[in-house]
């Protein structure tokens, strides 16, 4: 096969699959800007000028403003807790030796393959016993635990690869382990930490099953849960549903477009064992 032919074929394949990847996204965007109370359940094209008011309606009438508030609160809490706890634990796993360290580390790695379905039943009954269902704690604590598997694994790799001479220099300057971590290794590790932050943010933001099980009152609903209920309503309008979908997806997509390298790197290496 000639190189020219191969080049053409490659671009055709890339172009075709890019189009396939974008079609549902464009369809939802176009429907979100289309007229309300259209009878079609499929995608629609905007008639005349785009209806930006659909977003305002989804925000107010669809209560997505409230849901977004819940999602932001839960995401910020999970990301913050995961980052602090994962950095501390990974630092010890990477640079200190203590009996049982390997076993404990593998316990964390195990969490990478454990599906949420295998946890959610007892979590529901336990948290209901503690009267924590229908609170943000029921979303924050389990999601922090699940994110720690990735966080500890990811940050340990970073600390393992950090320069021993830098650590040695800090020690000669009289810095203890605590100071070395926060003054030197964490500032140097900003790229690794930000990759972890965006991945954990995405997982938390998109989480559905846990919210479905834990939350029954409307005031604690996160955006994916809100969207699912919105779709379940008999008379939900196609344009509003599409506008709501855009509101749900937009924060993660915006971060993705800004930091795509970190996203792809983090998601593809999360599964790689050493």
């Amino acid at each position: 096969m000639s190189t020219r032919g191969e080049r053409l074929l490659t671009y055709l394949i890339l172009g075709f699959f890019s189009l396939v990847a974008l079609t549902p996204v464009i369809g939802v965007l176009s429907t979100a800007l289309g007229p309300q109370s259209s009878l079609s359940t499929g995608f629609t094209l905007p008639e005349g000028s785009p209806e930006w008011g659909n977003f305002a309606d989804a925000w107010d009438r669809g209560h997505f403003g409230t849901y977004l508030g819940s999602s932001v609160l839960v995401s910020v809490a999970v990301v913050t807790a995961t980052t602090v706890l994962a950095v501390l634990a990974a630092y010890a796993f990477a640079l200190m030796r203590f009996p049982g360290a390997t076993v404990l580390f593998y316990l964390f790695v195990l969490g990478l393959t454990l599906p949420q379905e295998a946890l959610v039943i007892p979590l529901y009954f336990d948290l209901r016993e503690l009267e924590l269902t229908d609170t943000y704690w029921a979303l924050i604590l389990p999601q922090t635990a699940q994110s720690l598997a990735f966080g500890v694994f990811w940050m340990r790799t970073y600390f393992r690869n950090s320069s021993p001479t830098v650590i040695e220099a800090a020690r000669i300057d009289g810095a203890g382990t605590w100071t070395t971590l926060w003054r030197i290794l964490v500032p140097m590790g900003r790229p690794a930490i930000s990759t972890m932050v965006v991945i954990v943010f995405m997982w938390t933001w998109n989480e559905f099953l846990l919210a479905l099980v834990m939350v029954s009152d409307e005031s604690h609903r996160t955006v994916p849960l809100g969207l699912a209920f919105f779709q379940g309503q008999q008379n939900s309008d196609t344009a509003l549903l599409a506008a709501a979908s855009v509101l749900v997806a937009l924060p993660v997509v915006a971060v993705y477009l800004a930091l795509q390298r970190r996203f792809i790197e983090g998601m593809l290496t999360g599964a790689v064992k050493e």
Binding site: A81, V84, L85, A86, L88, A89, Y91, A92, F93, A94, L95, M96, R97, F98, A101, L104, L107, F108, G111, L114, A118, L119, V120, P122, L123, D126, L141, P142, T144, A145, Q146, L148, A149, V152, T177
Partner: peptide, 26 residues
């Protein structure tokens, strides 16, 4: 790595959350 029992202190907070909300429910 350095042999330090202080390692347990660094691991402990993560382990408590992970144990209570992942290992124990499993």
């Amino acid at each position: 790595g350095e042999p330090r029992a202080v390692g347990y202190l660094y691991v402990l907070p993560a382990l408590v959350v992970y144990g209570a909300f992942l290992l124990y429910p499993f």
